[in-house]
Design a protein around this nucleic acid. Structure first.
Ligand SMILES: [Zn+2]
Ligand SMILES: [Zn+2]
Length: 621
DNA sequence: ACCTGCGGGCGTG
DNA sequence: CACGCCCGCAGGT
């Protein structure tokens, strides 16, 4: 005689050992009952139990024995060893409630781990054409509280009881989340492996050097200059970092303070003091390495950061990315008609190029691909902030072009043609790859190119281009002396104020100025700005905008490598601070001393630092 | 890195 | 005391 399944959920017990006629799907029992019913047949596993649900499984059903669910359920302590309680975490949705290309909504699965879940919040919406960020739609399905699941094992059976009806959509299942993550990893790996696209006469080029190491300033610090533009500690290249000591002191402590603050909030008491002590050691080493005299008080830091936010004093350390007037810009602008989208490009030329790194524009990975933005100037791809540290070529392709034949192929360190006294680098500074030309070499070449360009600009009145291989270039910028990004001049204060109004990234009108403006640079040419600056500013803005896209009460922040999440609520000021704190390269530094990837493990794991080899090149993921 | 279960502890009603 | 919730630990994948 076979039992008739009481519902379509039912599954016949292979070996019914009891004669009782309990319905497997009955709701006549409670998980807390002293005696639980024993069914003739058990239920088929229910992936999406909703509403008040009773199920009885056997221990042989794997999903049941894992206490799995389609819903993202996390363990909850109910102080009962016999009954496992889980509560629903809701679903991750897009803050803009966008719709994907396939017509579906963004419904990601919240990570069960608290830390991992905090990291998810604020991440960019997976929809590439959406400017939203991920936010958590919490579950209130059980009298305002999350839906709860109860699991209890008894007599080889698994009793499940669900309480409450989810007031949110189903999240992506765990299986598809895993798949997606795997695909993402593959994509990243492939992109990284593909390297850069050399458009220049590849056969004549030596093997592109891989120089992941800028100048090391100490065990725990490394500058954030791109490898070929690094000017750290180089004679003749005074850094803005050391030339503005008071401000930089504050900013340096700013980062430390913020990250420490995060650490303090996240760790327990004992751990946090240990971490703080170790971070103080890091701070000290940074101070020493960067010739900073002393540490600063937190009040100075706070005053500075608040002042920056409220008074737009930020102008001192950044320039807008789509308008960068130089002394020539006035004439350029006057002769220009007024195309709506024109602006000064990063080279200071008035351009109708649509890209013009616009702070109000939403940047996705496509836009971070500078090769696509300005293919005749940039030939590399940056997807992550850390990528800038591992570029295999200078930022300015023209420079590469001119250096193509001069690149040594085997000699590890060609003698500097400038005849400078060759400094023997300290042991920690040794370039690990003997096939790589030294940064000193490139620096010498860069300096030579600069002086050559300056000499040509002053002596030549004709339009002969000194570059030997630029015949294919019809870009008007190529006709002038090849400017590297490091030669950018700061924007006039008047424009800067126009740009930075009310602490927002609001774009000023884009029509060219009608009147002749006084273009008196606030800083002289002795100030070299890093080529990194536009990127770091861009990245900072992106972080900041992402954070501000979320309401303050839901706002939290996850910095990529140095900072932990700042939990909600977050004010705009805090969002701003986090954006800066999350990014080690502050935009006013031609040289940025960062807590490096060497020490990154210390932030995230109280168990100790990770090995430098693993974290030096990139961001922890 | 993340998942999972355990359990101490805290606040609230 | 029941309950929701936070946190850290430990073992596993
Ligand atoms: Zn979206
Ligand atoms: Zn729910």
């Amino acid at each position: 005689m076979s039992a008739i399944p009481s519902s379509r959920h039912s599954l016949k017990l292979s070996m019914p050992r009891y004669g009782s006629l309990q319905k497997a799907t009955g709701n006549s029992w409670d998980i807390n009952d002293g005696v639980l019913p024993v069914p003739v047949q058990v239920d088929i596993f229910e992936e999406w139990p909703d509403g008040h649900t009773h199920r009885i499984y056997t221990g042989t059903q794997e999903e049941a024995s894992r206490h799995a669910s389609g819903w993202a359920m996390r363990n909850t302590n109910n102080h009962n060893v016999n009954i496992l309680k889980k509560s629903c975490l809701g679903v991750l949705v897009c803050s803009e409630n966008c719709t994907l290309e396939n017509g579906k909504k963004v419904l990601l699965r919240p990570a069960i781990c608290d830390k991992a879940r905090r990291k998810q919040l604020g991440r960019p919406c997976p929809n590439v054409s959406c400017r939203g960020v991920l936010t958590l739609k919490a579950c209130h399905g059980h009298a305002g509280y999350p839906v709860t699941h109860f699991w209890r094992h008894s007599s080889g059976l698994i009793y499940f009881q669900g309480k409450g009806q989810h007031d949110h959509a189903k999240p992506q299942t765990k299986a598809s989340t895993d798949l997606q993550l795997r695909r993402t990893w593959l994509r990243v790996a492939r992109r990284r492996a593909s390297g850069t696209n050399w458009n220049v006469n590849r056969s004549s080029m030596p093997t592109p050097p891989k120089v992941p190491r800028p100048v090391h300033l100490g065990k725990d610090a490394v500058c954030s200059c791109p490898p070929f533009e690094c000017q750290c500690s180089k004679p003749g290249f005074p850094s803005t970092y050391t030339s503005r000591e008071p401000l930089n002191l504050v900013m340096e402590s700013f980062k430390m303070e913020k990250t420490m603050q995060h650490t303090k909030g996240i760790l327990g008491k004992a751990e946090s003091s240990a971490i703080l002590a170790s971070q103080s050691a890091v701070a000290n080493s940074i101070t020493v390495a960067s010739s900073l005299s002393s540490s600063l008080s937190s009040s100075a830091f706070l005053a500075e950061s608040n002042a920056r936010f409220e008074t737009n004093a930020y102008k001192d350390c950044m320039f807008p990315l789509n308008r960068c007037p130089t002394s020539e810009t006035t004439t350029v602008a006057k002769s220009s008609t007024s195309p709506t989208n024109s602006s000064y490009d990063v080279h200071g030329a008035w351009s109708t190029w649509p890209l013009s790194l616009n702070p109000d524009f939403h940047y996705d990975s496509t836009h971070l691909d500078w090769n696509k933005l300005m293919p005749d100037q940039y030939d590399f791809e940056i997807n992550e902030p850390g990528d800038i540290l591992s570029l295999d070529q200078p930022l300015d392709k023209n420079l590469v072009h001119n250096m193509a034949q001069k690149l040594p192929t085997a000699s590890p360190t060609p003698a500097s043609p400038k005849g400078e006294a060759e400094r023997t680098p300290p042991a920690s500074d040794v370039n690990p790859d003997p096939n790589l030309p030294s940064i000193d070499y490139f620096l010498a070449e860069q300096q030579k190119a600069k002086s050559d360009a300056a000499a040509n600009a002053s002596t030549e009145e004709n339009m002969i281009n000194q570059s030997p291989r630029t015949e294919s270039h019809h870009n008007p910028r190529s006709a002038s002396s090849p400017k590297t990004l490091t030669e950018l001049n700061p924007i006039p204060a008047s424009d800067m104020q126009h740009w930075l109004s009310k602490g927002s990234w609001t774009q000023p009108e884009t029509s060219p100025p009608s009147e002749v403006r006084t273009t008196t640079p606030t800083h002289t040419s002795s100030e070299a700005r890093s080529a990194f600056q536009p990127y770091s500013t861009l990245y900072l803005q992106t972080l900041y905008n992402q954070s501000r896209a979320v309401p303050p009460d839901q706002r939290c922040f996850h910095g990529s490598n140095l900072t932990e999440s700042c939990p909600p609520p977050m004010s705009d000021v805090e969002a701003y601070q986090c954006a800066i704190g999350a990014y080690p390269c502050l935009p006013n530094h031609s040289i940025n001393i960062t807590l490096t990837y060497n020490q990154g493990g210390n932030w995230q794991s109280p168990k100790g630092p990770v090995s430098p080899e693993k974290s030096l090149l990139g961001f922890a993921r």
